[in-house]
Design a protein around this nucleic acid. Structure first.
Lengths: 152, 152
DNA sequence: CTATATTTAGAAAATAATTCTATTCTTAAA
DNA sequence: TTTAAGAATAGAATTATTTTCTAAATATAG
């Protein structure tokens, strides 16, 4: 995938704010509307642009309680691993999940209302899954940085 | 913040895809354009909608190497803590940073090109900061789930 | 109930996205 | 270099969408 400097600047602008007009991006890049329009279309078609989304203020929708939960499985048979991953996708409280190196197998990021909601999630949903060995929860005391933008 | 069922459905649609037309959302919600338009405007003004962004495909921009780095500080004097947090905000490789409970003080999510780029970040930038005690890196073997949407 | 404020619908106006045509700029081969 | 082919760009025309406006319907408080 070849991205020239204009593509990179454009993608930085789009990552920061996707609701400006094409004319506004064109002004910043000192290009015509059409040039910017065609570049965006190309980046969408190539798959570089994955999607356009709306980000909400977690504090205002009662989901400001963020927990990182390390999970260890009992068995690492391919079939069980696949099953765990399928089930995690269905858990609405889990916003991110990574298979990671180290002592634990998975790292989950969970957003809920409060500790009580987390307890319900942990006891009622996560540890209720088959093949869960141990879990270790770290609570977010403060969100220092959260960005969906990747530097180009 | 009071959100009725229509607001919640609308926010779920907007979180999933922010580039549809108002008419499209209005059809899904069985409302008029104006009703949806005014609801979106209200949610923006109240701050429930934080921003609209473009998400990129990390694999196609050479940033698919994701690392979670736990960081312990040496001293926890308020001034040093503030300084660390200010500096983390400036590190372009760091996409998320949380002050967390547990053995370590912070959890950082880092996106770079490959292990070599991570080594440069860790040695050249992160551990070069003042007041860093120890760090522990976990490498993402697989991204099982990544979502910016929060269930309402 | 009644008055007031809020939400909604439909139409009109303003703005923006998309397409079209022609031109300019690159690139690679002669 | 020069030239031909392809890609990228500009500007205008068209189409689509957002935004505003007016009036009606619905909900809310006294």
């Amino acid at each position: 995938m070849q991205l020239d400097e204009i593509d990179k600047k454009l993608l930085m602008l789009l990552q920061t704010d996707s609701k400006r007009t094409i004319k506004a991006y064109a002004n910043d890049l000192e290009l015509s509307n059409t040039a910017v329009y065609e570049r965006i279309r190309r980046l969408e078609n190539k798959g570089v642009i994955a999607k356009y989304v709306t980000l909400l203020n977690k504090g205002l929708i009662d989901k400001a309680f963020v927990v990182f939960c390390h999970v260890k499985l009992v068995q690492h048979i391919k079939e069980y691993v696949r099953q765990f991953e399928r089930e995690v996708l269905q858990l609405e409280e889990v916003v991110e999940c990574y298979h990671i190196s180290g002592d634990y197998d998975y790292l989950l990021k969970i957003c809920v209302k409060d500790m009580e909601a987390y307890r319900e999630f942990l006891v009622g949903k996560l540890t209720a899954l088959k093949n869960i060995g141990s879990t270790q929860s770290s609570f977010a005391i403060q969100e220092v940085k959260y960005s969906t933008a990747i530097q180009l």
